[in-house]
Amino acid sequence: MENNKLQELIQNFTPEAEITAGKQFLTVTVDKSRLHELAKKLKESEETQFDYLFCESAVDYNDYFMMVYHLDSTTHRHQLVLKAKITDRENPEIDSVCDLWEAANYHEREIFDLFGIRFINHPDMRKIFLDNDWVGFPLRKDYVDKVNVVER
């Protein structure tokens, strides 16, 4: 589907969604409480059918985290980037999308491990790479590791 039609459609789903037409993908930013609801609609709606989550990541912007979901539709062949902001740094939490896309399972475990973001309703919220007694979250910008990270 064309980007502008997609834009209209998403505006209907969630009126308060912030939509920007990026150079590459259409980007939709929503509040984290609305994320799961919109994701479910995007996956299940006949016109959008975003059934392939090809990347899920998080970015640390110092005062907040941004969750980034890259979606693709195998029927309509259109892409979309879904974003949600998490402002609470002490106890970051967001709804898991694991029930919609099974691919999110490992991605979310990785983000939990390296960013410390907890996913609500995730079936298996364990660390994936680091030891269980590892202190801190390496991909956060304020992570300090005097032994392994050399400052230049």
């Binding site: 059934d51 392939y52 989550l53 090809f54 195998t74 099974e102 691919a103």
Partner: peptide, 20 residues
Amino acid sequence: EDAINFGLSGPPGRASGFSC
């Protein structure tokens, strides 16, 4: 369906019929 849902790409995905 599972291949798409799990994000199985490359030759394993195409063996299941997922055009990826």
